[in-house]
Simulated assay, not measured.
Amino acid sequence: MGQTPRPRRSVLYMPGANERALEKAKTLDADALILDLEDAVAPDAKDEARERVCAAAASGEYGAREVTIRVNGLDTDWHEADLREAAKAGPDAIVVPKVNSREQVTTIERALEFNGAPDHTKIWAMVETPIAMLRAADIAAASDRLTVLVMGTNDLAKELHAEFVPGRAPLLGGLSLALLAARATGKVILDGVYNDVKDAEGFEAECRQGRQMGFDGKTLIHPAQLEPCNRIFAPSEEEVAHSRRVIEAFDAAQAEGKGVVTVDGRMIENLHVDNARRILALAEAIEARG
């Protein structure tokens, strides 16, 4: 908790083959962008998209937005070239799909170093298979360069033979394992996408569920999802005010040598103070981002 948190409430996938989309992303209120070379790009457009995305990531034209590049998977013909060129472009992070083991993280890290990736270019590992859920702690702990776990809920549901249902009951076991791994290793974790861009009510419900579970933010597939996602994953005015009261009461009690602190009729312990400080730090980081 020593360093200021970076807001990652909303993380928007942008198709790397679409020049207009990459340009539009410069104006969108997303905390982070994933410039996509994988699912959003047809096989015959991979080379052109790679060149376009790497130029965009290196341009410095995206303001406070965190800019990442999603490369193609380790088992594809495009992965090596994607990783090489992305490393040279030096984005904030390189997003790697279907990371299933500690050894794969090590391989990715070595490739980034070999290709001259700057220190600020981190690894975001997508965990989206049953084996990744079971190995999530090993994956998360594999490298200090790995800073974020990204849930791939569509692929996880496919491999589980699960149905997409409100509340995501079939996925909760995997989501919880990945969350435990992230928190145990001090990593950020992002919830998966919501597929029905016309279902605003369902999307907001899933955002609230993700926030309640403990996710730091959510990956998105459409700009229309940005506003509700940013709102739900940000501390509310009530949370900020309560957090300030908690810290003020705790500090006052310590100064007076009191052992018991209450705020709004509830006893306050160190864990409540830590949580209050985390909430205020996030609120301040969001405000500073503008």
Rank of each mutant, 00 (worst) to 15 (best):
P7Y: 05
R8T: 13
R9Q: 07
V11E: 07
Y13W: 14
M14Y: 02
P15W: 01
P15K: 05
R20G: 12
A21D: 00
L22A: 11
A25R: 04
A30N: 09
L33C: 08
L35G: 03
L37G: 00
L37V: 02
E38C: 02
V41Y: 08
P43K: 08
A45H: 08
A45R: 14
D47H: 12
E48S: 13
A49S: 11
R52V: 11
V53C: 03
A56W: 02
V67R: 02
R70A: 06
R70N: 06
N72G: 06
L74W: 09
D75T: 15
T76R: 11
T76K: 12
D77M: 13
E85D: 13
K88W: 01
P91E: 01
V95P: 05
V96F: 02
V96K: 02
K98Q: 10
Q104S: 12
Q104R: 13
T107C: 09
I108Q: 01
I108K: 04
E109G: 03
L112S: 01
A117D: 00
P118Q: 10
H120F: 09
T121W: 03
T121L: 04
I123C: 00
I123K: 00
A125H: 03
T129Y: 01
M133Q: 11
M133E: 13
R135L: 13
D138G: 12
D138N: 12
I139K: 05
D144S: 12
T147Y: 01
T147N: 02
V148P: 04
L149V: 04
G152Q: 12
T153P: 07
T153D: 15
L156K: 03
K158A: 15
E159G: 06
H161D: 15
A169G: 08
A169W: 11
G173H: 12
S176F: 06
A178E: 14
L180C: 12
D191Y: 07
V197T: 14
K198N: 13
D199S: 10
D199Y: 06
Q209H: 12
D216E: 14
G217Y: 04
G217C: 09
K218E: 09
L220Q: 13
P223D: 10
N230W: 01
I232N: 09
F233K: 11
V240I: 15
A241L: 12
H242G: 00
R244H: 14
R245F: 06
A249F: 08
V263D: 10
R266G: 03
N270F: 11
L271W: 10
H272E: 02
D274E: 15
A281K: 08
A288D: 13
A288K: 14
G290P: 08
G290L: 09
